[in-house]
Write a protein that binds this DNA or RNA. Structure first.
Lengths: 242, 242
DNA sequence: CCTGATTGTCATAAATTTGTAACGCATTCT
DNA sequence: AGAATGCGTTACAAATTTATGACAATCAGG
């Protein structure tokens, strides 16, 4: 998964150290030494995650975090705070402006990477570009294709075509298989946060997705959980046959 | 787990930050700035947990906690106190009023969420979405499935299908096993607050639940306690076996 | 500016769920 | 025993929840 990370840190030595490690881990790294620089950077390229030093020359990290949270475009970006020492007084009201995690200096690169991974997994599991293959369906986020694997001959694969929304919906469901998702949750995570769309619209898209899956007899992977929502699952809920 | 939390805190900045964090954690948040507002709110929507500032403009948090404890409808709601001081004497007074836990300012969102989770697990086990497995029945709130574990081969599991209400009912009973629940209690906690439904309706749902459990010979897990209500128990109240 | 694909909403149909009422059996009380 | 109470069962109609097809608005390219 190629993730773009913005590092906001005024001490150049530390900044570079972090950047080096992140690059080594395969991330794209953007660096800024103060909030103003960071702001410009964000305007230019939207990062997937922000590593934010608690103390910055021009504005406290806290302020900057709040700022990010306020703007529509940046409000959902995960933020990890880099705080010097474990001084409780630093954690001020202790309440951050919505940071997703803290890392206290000094920290090991290993720890930092682990935290980053954890936050990303929590916030954007379906953003990882890994191919997902479940129940005879193979979805490749990179090529943006979905294939049906023939059960008898795994080497054969038929492609199926999905619209943009259906693709994202299927991607999300597959990335979070075996879990029930309410319509509200799906709207939040597939359509985007704070969208003002009817719950029922989800039904329609599920319908569209199923219609396409019907053609390859995979429609029962998308299951209805009455009173709750929908679920992607291999396990078939067989009705009690009398 | 969708939990409704009422935040009673007069400092708006802190109130908002708490609300933000709670929402991010997937909770539904209600806010009040003083006891009077909080009272009205509680009358309207019964929260699952109350975060209560120690000092409020119109009434001490302590007073408000006691008030909640006095009323039938609210007496079981878990309360977490937000206190600026750590004085032992206060702690005792608070425990007296029935607070379930304390968080002293300043605190980190992580800590607050952890405390909330702990309190909920203790007081409202059916809200936590952990898998519950008792007497050969395994209920998973996340996937929303119920399985019967074969006694001879624990790896085999047959799924059973429940309607929404039966699922909630079984979930509640399993989360509070070995306890008798009156019909009124079940209506309050499974159907929800403020519902005006006949007591006898519970019987019917118990019946429906049992009917499904009969198919897998688990119906005696749901037991009748004559004159009181129902109970989920492994222990068999064996009648004169014929 | 046209063309076809995509999307959000509705209206309607279909499927399930749910609360009550009614009846009968069992247990307890008088 | 006879009455009273509590519970189990069944049947049903009302209410709720989903599925589905149609439609208009919007969008992306030509």
């Amino acid at each position: 998964m190629t993730v773009t990370i913005l590092v906001v840190e005024d001490e150049l030595a530390i900044q570079e150290l972090i950047a080096l490690n992140l690059k080594k881990a395969g991330h794209i790294v953007l660096c800024a030494s103060d909030a103003e620089q960071a702001r410009k950077m964000v305007n230019n390229i939207l990062p997937d995650l922000v590593l934010l030093d608690w103390m910055l020359p021009d504005m406290s990290g806290l302020e900057f975090a709040k700022k990010l949270r306020r703007e529509e475009r940046t409000k959902t970006i995960p933020i990890i705070m880099l705080t010097a020492r474990v001084q409780e007084s630093d954690k001020i009201a202790g309440l951050d402006a919505g940071a997703d995690d803290y890392v206290t200096k000094p920290f090991s690169p290993r720890e930092l990477l682990a935290r980053i991974k954890a936050v990303l997994r929590r916030r954007l599991p379906e953003m990882s570009d890994e191919i997902i293959e479940i129940g005879g369906l193979k979805l490749d986020p990179v090529t943006h294709r979905v294939h049906v694997i023939a059960t008898d001959d795994p080497s054969k694969a038929t492609e199926i075509t999905l619209g943009p929304t259906e693709f994202r919906l299927l991607h999300f469901l597959m990335a979070h298989k075996e879990r029930v998702h309410t319509r509200a949750q799906l709207l939040d995570r597939v359509w985007g946060d704070h969208v003002f769309i009817e719950d029922r619209t989800v039904d329609v898209h599920i319908r569209r997705l199923r219609k396409i899956l019907e053609k390859v007899e995979k429609e029962n992977l998308v299951q209805t959980v009455r009173g709750t929502g929908y679920r992607f699952s291999i396990e078939q809920t067989e009705e009690a046959v009398e």
